[in-house]
Amino acid sequence: MRTSMPDGSTEFVIPSDLGQAHCVQDAIEIQLKECHFDDKEIFGIRLALEEAIVNAMKHGNQMDPAKKVHVRFRVLPERIDVGVTDEGPGYDPGDVPDPLADENLERPCGRGLFLIQHYMTEVMVHPPGNRLTMSKVRVKPHLNGDKPHKGLNGDTPH
């Protein structure tokens, strides 16, 4: 289900089906291209989206098809804001082992949140840990001198 929100954002509510996750990513990628995000930016955002949505479906909803993932996003020329919410109990990001530690380097999992934090400029996991918001604020100056837009939480970029 796709809904346009009053603040200009779009929300998808999808079952825990990885195929549907890619439909959401494709829709976001179209808007990124319309706003002239470059290929490198799109690569990082797409990877962050993949990791966030897969985490929500696998670890949050345990791939339960009855549980939904809510993906809300807004793309502007100077930034993208995304919120991903699952119907799981949540988790404490502090419990995720450091994937860069020598002893964890050969662990086959546990890099998703790290990659999101690398490729996005603002990332928050909201208590109880079933909602993640992330933004990519572009370094290019605002073309028309407007004030920066607020994120989906109403927060201004740092």
Binding site: E50, E106, L115
Partner: peptide
């Protein structure tokens, strides 16, 4: 052109 952390996990297991 793209890969995710899940793919990295497979390559790590393959390496082992």
């Amino acid at each position: 052109e793209y890969l995710s952390s899940a793919a990295l996990g497979k390559f790590i297991t393959l390496n082992k």
